[in-house]
């Protein structure tokens, strides 16, 4: 308090520092903003084109003998992608209906069902598949890559992709009846 000395020059913040500060701040805000936007979006929406992905399949649940399938393999078919897990209670509500629907459409050759097993362990997943007698191609969502692609919010979720590879309908939560599944598929088959 006693030794006050006057410094002659008024020194503000140097220009380079100002630039660094503003760029840093804007960068931070931009990043948080983009993330927030992503979180707010929810799942991918009908109308979005789905980027191609590869689903490895559990042995015994292959498609036409192939150990893995690509979405693009199924151009010209209606694709139903179901995300599930063996630890997921609500998934059990729809498991039987999904299998029934598959049994109905498999012979037509125009519809393909894919089960993507989310954050699950293989032994338990097999027990689950056997318990509900599921036969359509099923495989683990390796590295949660596919679920990130669809930005799933939880399991079960089911995505209906039309013959041209465009997402048409999203079911969040379990189906309540076979009719619900059929209705969506018939709509897409009619095109």
């Amino acid at each position: 308090m006693t030794e006050t000395t006057e410094t002659p020059a008024r020194r503000g913040v140097p220009l380079w520092a100002q630039i660094v500060i503003w760029i840093g701040l804007l960068g931070l805000l931009l990043m948080v903003g983009v993330t927030l936007n992503k979180r707010q979006q929810g799942t991918v929406q009908p109308g979005d084109a789905i980027p191609d992905f590869t689903l490895p399949l559990f042995s015994g649940y292959e498609y036409a003998g192939k150990p893995e399938v690509k979405l693009s393999d199924f151009r010209g078919k209606v694709v139903v992608i179901n995300f599930w897990a063996s630890w997921c209670k609500p998934c059990e509500q729809e498991a039987a209906e999904l299998q029934e629907a598959w049994a109905l459409y498999e012979p037509t050759g125009q519809v393909i069902f894919l089960g993507a097993d989310y954050v699950d362990t293989e032994p338990e997943a097999r027990v689950y598949l056997q318990k509900y007698g599921i036969t359509f191609p099923n495989g683990p969502d390796m590295g949660t890559r596919i679920s990130q692609l669809f930005r799933i919010q939880g399991v079960p979720e089911t995505y209906f992709v039309d013959k041209t590879g465009v997402l048409r309908y999203v079911q969040v939560g379990p189906f309540s009846s076979l009719g619900q599944i059929q209705a969506q598929i018939e709509l897409l088959l009619a095109e």
Binding site: M1, T4, T7, R10, G12
Partner: peptide, 21 residues
């Protein structure tokens, strides 16, 4: 709030000089 406070601070920076060494 971030932009306003930082802007204000930069604006007044020179006035906030030290009195002692």
């Amino acid at each position: 709030t971030f932009v306003t406070s930082i802007g204000l601070l930069i604006h007044r920076w020179a006035d906030l000089k030290a009195e002692a060494e």
